[in-house]
């Protein structure tokens, strides 16, 4: 029996070189979703009152961004141009529904606190923006790297903002008391003097402070990386 020669379609090898690394690291600095591309601000502001919520949100966005990019990229040749927005939105909405159901089952408290903002990942412009700008024109592998990088770039900013807001607003990090009023069991002990001197700044918990923190972050980022400065 003669062997049937299977003609493999010519494929570029999947490798992890300089270009691929750039896809992953670019969104962390030069092309950061929040401070440079200004995408996905809405949810970034609303969920950053505590680091725990921010972490849950960051993981959710990384997941959605990664898989939406891969799926769209795999389907990119069969999506008609006119209805591509709706197709992309349906892909994203499906993934977000998965995230919502998983959170509802395994992290009900976070689910309650994040409420509508889980659903708003659908309209989180980073996901959509990356699908339009990258996944529609590239292979699934590169798209996966791009999605991962952008998700992480977004998550890092989220955690930084949440750190400042939670630390100065409530004196806590991940819900653990660091500064502020001393806990009950320490009153009248030497340890209580470590706390006491700081009173939580309620403004930091409110929405406007998220704006201020991001404004200062943008300032710092652009001062450090002058090629990003807006010259218009």
């Amino acid at each position: 029996m003669a062997d049937v020669a299977v003609v493999e379609p010519k494929k570029e090898a999947i490798k992890f070189g300089k270009k691929e690394r750039a896809l992953l690291t670019d969104p962390l600095d030069d092309n950061n979703p929040i401070t440079v591309q200004v995408l996905g601000i809405c949810s970034a502001l609303a969920v950053t009152t505590g680091m725990k919520n921010a972490a849950v949100m960051a993981v959710a966005v990384v997941f959605v961004c990664l898989f939406a990019n891969v799926i769209t990229s795999a389907l990119r040749k069969s999506i008609p141009k006119q209805v591509r927005m709706i197709v992309q939105l349906v892909i994203i909405a499906t993934l977000v529904t998965v995230v919502e159901l998983v959170l509802k089952a395994y992290a009900f408290e976070s689910y309650k606190q994040l409420s509508v903002f889980i659903g708003l990942i659908i309209t989180n412009c980073i996901v959509m923006g990356r699908l339009e700008a990258f996944a529609m024109g590239n292979r699934p592998y590169e798209s996966a790297l791009d999605g991962l990088g952008n998700g992480i770039g977004y998550g890092i900013i989220l955690l930084i903002v949440a750190f400042f807001r939670e630390f100065f607003g409530k004196g806590e990090i991940f819900g653990v008391k660091i500064i502020g009023a001393a806990p009950e069991y320490m009153i009248n002990t030497l340890e209580s003097t470590w706390f006491g001197w700081y009173a939580g700044n309620n403004l930091m918990v409110l929405f406007p402070s998220a704006m201020f923190v991001i404004a200062v972050l943008i300032w710092a980022h652009r001062a450090w990386n002058p090629k990003l400065v807006d010259i218009s």
Binding site: V38, M211, A215, W219, R222, A223, P226, V229, D230
Partner: peptide, 10 residues
């Protein structure tokens, strides 16, 4: 300069 545009809008 670093605050121009976006930073100021925030």
């Amino acid at each position: 300069p670093a605050m121009r545009g976006l930073g100021m809008a925030f």
